[in-house]
Computed example of a mutant assay.
Amino acid sequence: MIIGRRRAETMDFAPGMAEVLAEDARLSPLGDMAAATFWAEGARHVADIRDLTFEGAAGQAQAARLYRSREGRTPVLLYIHGGGWSGGSIALNERAARELAAESGWSVLSISYRLAPAHPFPAGLDDCRAALAWLRREGPALGLDTDRIAVGGTSAGANLAMATALAEKQQGLAKLLLFYGVFGADFSTPSYERFAAGPGLTRERMQHLFSLYDPQGERDREPLITPLLADLAGLPPALLIAAECDVLCSDSERMADALRRAGVETSLHIEPGVTHGFINRGRLLPAATAALHRAAGFLAGRP
């Protein structure tokens, strides 16, 4: 099903979206920590937050943060941040992680991974797979139900989440939660054409990010870079949440169609009047909180 579709040609912003874009412009020269602090203010309380490390695929220590929604054994979402495979952080996703944990009753393990261009494909993906293996080993001692692990992420993190699910298809993941993901490498889709110059993420920027992550140019034949090329049969139920005013909106539409054709239980929600990266902007943008509430309901099994 497709929920909440509006004609993108109107470019009508959701309440608060113009203010978010202005605030992002103000924060940009101040760096990630200033942005993370601003957007996390007022985030939901959760029962416990613990900073952890796991061993990455090359034996290196990688940071992770566990958000516990409640006492007792809980299912867990492995959450992979976005940032064009070359940036982003756990801290920049604090608000989303807290909201998902508080609303769903699941715990959320938000992870880091090696970044391009110093570490191009498949380094980041290999670290995500290492995180999943670590979670399966260590999760029970952390009070996590490792029989119910979902994988999710935002933007490039949604790409890595999908690639992790494809690479670990036999591991019996519970669900996929994918926010405005990068699933194809076709820069002429309707949303790429409509929003080539923004607002927010641009076509030129996406082309540059692909060149950092995939300097060998494998994306036209490698499904772990371009999941729309993959055999999607056997994946767990998926919820895709896209931003209407985003070059990547068509990627989510095409992935939802491909998942359904492969027999995967799939829902697609396109949030009207918002731009790429919106879910951590709930301080000013009610639509962000609403989208996270929808995502939490999917995890919890609410209709």
Rank of each mutant, 00 (worst) to 15 (best):
Ser89Thr: 15
Ala123His: 15
Leu268Glu: 09
Cys128Trp: 05
Phe298Ala: 13
Gly42Asp: 12
Gln171Tyr: 05
Val151Tyr: 00
Asp48His: 11
Val46Trp: 09
Pro199Tyr: 09
Gly143Arg: 07
Leu160Met: 14
Ala102Phe: 02
Phe183Lys: 08
Val76Asn: 06
Leu178Ile: 10
Thr275Tyr: 01
Ile111Asp: 07
Cys249Leu: 03
Arg70Phe: 02
Arg194Gly: 05
Arg68Leu: 05
Glu99Val: 11
Glu71Met: 08
Leu229Glu: 00
Val151Glu: 04
Phe183Asp: 04
Met1Thr: 08
Ala123Ile: 09
Glu103Asp: 13
Arg95Asp: 01
His208Asp: 05
Glu168Asn: 08
Glu204Val: 04
Leu177Trp: 03
Arg7Val: 03
Ala165Gln: 04
Ala256Gly: 15
Ala133Cys: 05
Leu52Trp: 04
Ala197Arg: 02
Arg261Asp: 07
Gly157Ala: 08
Asp186Val: 09
Asp145Gly: 06
Ala34Phe: 08
Glu193Asn: 14
Pro120Ile: 05
Tyr79Pro: 00
Gly124Ala: 13
Ala161Val: 03
Pro199Cys: 14
Thr164Arg: 06
Thr202Asn: 12
Glu168Phe: 00
Ala34Thr: 15
Gly31Val: 10
Val247Gln: 02
Glu271Trp: 01
Leu66Thr: 06
Gly82Met: 11
Val76Thr: 09
Ala97Cys: 15
Ile111His: 06
Ser211Ala: 13
His208Ile: 00
Ala150Ile: 00
Leu239Val: 05
Glu218Ile: 01
Phe179Asn: 00
Tyr213Pro: 05
Leu235Arg: 04
Arg129Pro: 04
Asp147His: 08
Glu103Ser: 15
Ala196Met: 10
Ala97Ile: 04
Gln171Lys: 13
Ala262Lys: 14
Arg114Pro: 06
Leu239Lys: 07
Glu265Asn: 12
Thr275Asn: 07
Leu224Ala: 10
Asp51Phe: 09
Arg65Phe: 08
Ala150Met: 01
Ser252Pro: 01
Leu144Ile: 10
Gln62Asp: 13
Phe38Tyr: 15
Ser104Tyr: 02
Glu99Thr: 15
Leu77Asn: 05
Arg283Glu: 02
Arg129His: 11
Ala262Glu: 05
Val182Trp: 01
Asn159Gln: 09
Gly56Asn: 09
Ala258Gly: 13
Met162Cys: 10
Ala291Tyr: 03
Ala130Ser: 14
Val247Ile: 12
Gly263Asp: 12
Ala287Gln: 10
Phe187Arg: 03
Ile3Leu: 11
